[in-house]
């Protein structure tokens, strides 16, 4: 077991070192949600009223509403960034080193997920801190309670990134991920507008949003930030994580997946 933990430490440590070396990535990851929070939300505040719905006990401003969605956005973009770095690892060859290690492949992939998620969570807390400086705060204990939710949502989105990395053959194809995964997942969710608001314009869109795992990741974060809990969101996130991880392990199976298609 100690051998497995050493591998985990090494993989997480390498992810962290890579992150430290890429300060631009850290800034980009923070600027994106902050622009949404301080520019987009300020403009939308007048246009979009948010009524009192769980977990909120009172009327809230739009900026407050979208904070959990923007936490989800950071996790989503980082999950995809980790997918990009896996494709990069494959192109520069370091993936071979990982996959020829004498440890179960599923564990090596889980280590990558954990590393990517920890980096994401650091960014989420930095974002929440800056949001707090602008007066957008949550209940103090909510910052602690949300940690397991961030971990689970981060694992789910990193697992999705892992699935994508097993199917993306070249770095150049990554733009497609932006268009066909990140944007639909983000906009067809409860990150920017509550589902009841979506239903006012289209029931179909609301139903699609309700089937989007990202919606449930955002709702889990939202509830936990307010010291509340949603079983529905938890079940969706856990089930989606298991499904994505299963697909990733299949994608990286040497008999069926990645290297065979690449070599071929």
């Amino acid at each position: 077991m100690i051998i497995w933990l050493r591998a985990l430490r090494a993989i997480v440590g390498r992810d962290f070192l890579r992150f430290v070396h890429q300060r631009e990535r850290f800034l980009a990851a923070l600027v994106r949600p902050l622009v949404w929070l301080l520019v987009f939300a300020a403009g939308f505040r007048a246009a979009l009223g948010v009524s009192i719905t769980p977990p909120y006990q009172t009327y809230i401003t739009y900026e407050t509403y979208i904070v959990p969605g923007l936490c989800g956005m950071i996790l989503l973009f980082n999950g995809m960034q980790s997918s990009l770095s896996l494709v990069y690892d494959r192109e520069i060859g370091t993936m071979r080193l990982l996959l020829t290690s004498p440890l179960p492949r599923w564990w090596l992939l889980v280590c990558r997920l954990i590393g990517s998620t920890i980096i994401s969570i650091l960014q989420v807390y930095t974002f929440l801190f800056i949001a707090g400086l602008f007066g957008i705060t949550m209940p103090p204990l909510g910052y602690v309670a949300v940690l397991p939710g961030l971990m689970m949502a981060g694992l789910m989105l990193s697992a999705l990134g892992l699935v994508l990395s097993s199917f993306i053959k070249q770095l150049e194809n990554f733009a497609g991920v932006m268009n066909f995964v990140i944007f639909p997942m983000f906009f067809l969710s409860s990150a920017l507008y509550p589902l009841w608001k979506m239903a006012e314009s289209s029931d179909l869109l609301r139903d699609i949003c309700a089937l989007n795992p990202f919606t449930h990741a955002v709702e889990m974060i939202r509830y936990l930030l307010y010291l509340d809990f949603s079983w529905t969101a938890l079940i969706w996130v856990v089930t989606s994580t298991a499904a994505f991880l299963g697909m990733a392990i299949w994608g990286y199976d040497p008999a069926r997946g990645l290297m065979k298609r690449k070599s071929g």
Partner: peptide
Amino acid sequence: RQNLAYFGALHGLS
């Protein structure tokens, strides 16, 4: 050294 350490840990070395 970090490259070697990464590899060594993947092989379970202390």
